[in-house]
């Protein structure tokens, strides 16, 4: 597979959630990922965007978010960059799944859907990298 990347730059506006989900779903579908899996990938990426809006940007809706969707070899990669405050990695999946809480499900969903989730604080930005190995999904033959 040739390396393919799509970059989307959008404001931290919750109204644009459908745009993010649509982009991720269509991107994954283009590489043969079945619809149900596409929806799950879109959900996981949207959860990451929601966390950026709520926590990195403190619900400010005019801040930049950059999403890059890449396909290389047998892997889909979704990288999110934002200029908000640093995340606290200790809050990622901070309590066991199944515990009745009224929040904090987003990082669990990311971890459940993706094969790898990696957060990194850059000098002036946050970077979240999520990876899905296509060998682990039943792909749909295009054509």
């Amino acid at each position: 597979m040739l390396d393919v990347s799509v970059k989307l730059v959008l404001p931290s506006d919750p109204r644009l959630g459908g745009v993010v989900r649509g982009a991720v779903e269509q991107f994954a579908a283009a590489f043969g990922v079945p619809e149900r899996e596409c929806c799950a990938l879109a959900l996981a990426v949207q959860e990451a965007v929601t966390n950026i809006i709520r926590h990195a940007y403190g619900n400010r809706h005019d801040q930049p978010i950059e999403l890059t969707c890449s396909a290389r070899a047998d892997t889909l990669e979704f990288v999110l960059l934002d200029e908000g405050t640093a995340a606290d990695p200790a809050r990622f999946c901070a309590w066991p799944l199944g515990e009745v809480r009224s929040g904090g499900f987003g990082t669990h969903i990311m971890a459940q859907v993706m094969d790898g989730v990696q957060y990194e604080r850059l000098p002036d930005r946050n970077r979240l990298r999520m990876v899905k190995h296509l060998g682990k999904v039943d792909r749909v033959v295009q054509g």
Binding site: E47, R101, S102, G103, G106
Partner: peptide
């Protein structure tokens, strides 16, 4: 579509 914030609302309702 429902995301984690929607699930959180359902859990609050359950509580």
């Amino acid at each position: 579509y429902i995301d984690s914030s929607g699930i959180a609302s359902l859990v609050e309702g359950w509580q």
